[in-house]
Amino acid sequence: MQHNNSNKNINLSDFDLKSLELLNIQKNMGLLAIYADILSYISTLESIDLVYAQYDKNAKNVHNPDIPALQASYIYLFTRTIFTQVGFTKYDMLLERYNRGDYNYSLDPNRKINMANLLGIVANSYSLSAIEEIYLREKDQPIFGI
């Protein structure tokens, strides 16, 4: 996908400028969420190594899989929080247009996205709390389900 931003002669509306700003934030958070997925994957690989290391008397310097899992969980919570802010900001922009009569579509899908994001924050908070507890409890135990 190519985005040609080189045409500086485009006179974008304030609404579209703000929409592009939100989309760029969303794009960056998407990349950060992919990084969190990679950390989660690394944690899983390190967990597999940890299980095998229990049967290998020569295993040394086995990585702690809790660390990338914890890092991933912090990033997931952060990105979900930013996605939520983007969603609410866009909703407010649409609501303003709706109230002026410039937007004729239902705002219900946007409300649902906002609710899903709020629930995602709660879910990510619970996950982070659980991962922190496992990390503090036992540093050589794989974390499942992330």
Rank of each mutant, 00 (worst) to 15 (best):
M1V: 06
H3E: 14
H3T: 10
N4G: 12
N4W: 08
N5W: 09
N5G: 15
S6A: 14
N11F: 08
N11S: 11
L12K: 15
S13V: 02
D14G: 10
F15E: 03
S19R: 07
L20H: 11
Q26H: 13
Q26P: 00
K27G: 08
N28G: 11
N28K: 08
L31D: 08
L32I: 04
L32M: 12
L32W: 01
Y35Q: 10
Y35M: 06
D37I: 00
D37Q: 09
L39Y: 01
S40F: 02
Y41D: 08
I42N: 05
T44V: 10
T44D: 10
T44E: 14
T44C: 09
L45W: 05
L45K: 12
E46A: 04
D49V: 05
L50G: 05
L50H: 05
Y55A: 14
D56H: 06
K57I: 13
N58H: 13
N58S: 13
A59E: 09
A59N: 11
V62K: 02
V62G: 02
H63W: 07
H63N: 14
D66C: 15
P68G: 03
P68M: 05
L70N: 00
Q71G: 03
A72Q: 00
Y74E: 07
Y74V: 00
Y74Q: 01
I75L: 09
I75H: 00
R80K: 10
I82M: 04
F83N: 04
Q85K: 14
Q85T: 07
Q85G: 04
Q85L: 12
Y91R: 14
L95F: 15
E96T: 12
Y98V: 02
N99I: 06
R100E: 15
D102N: 11
D102T: 05
N104H: 10
Y105H: 10
Y105G: 04
L107K: 06
L107S: 04
D108A: 15
P109T: 08
R111M: 15
R111N: 12
M115S: 14
A116K: 15
A116Y: 13
N117V: 04
N117K: 08
L119V: 00
G120M: 03
N124Y: 09
N124H: 12
Y126N: 13
L128E: 01
S129I: 00
I131K: 04
E133W: 09
E133L: 15
I134F: 12
I134Y: 09
Y135N: 15
L136K: 15
L136Q: 09
P142I: 04
F144E: 12
F144G: 05
G145R: 03
I146W: 05
I146D: 03
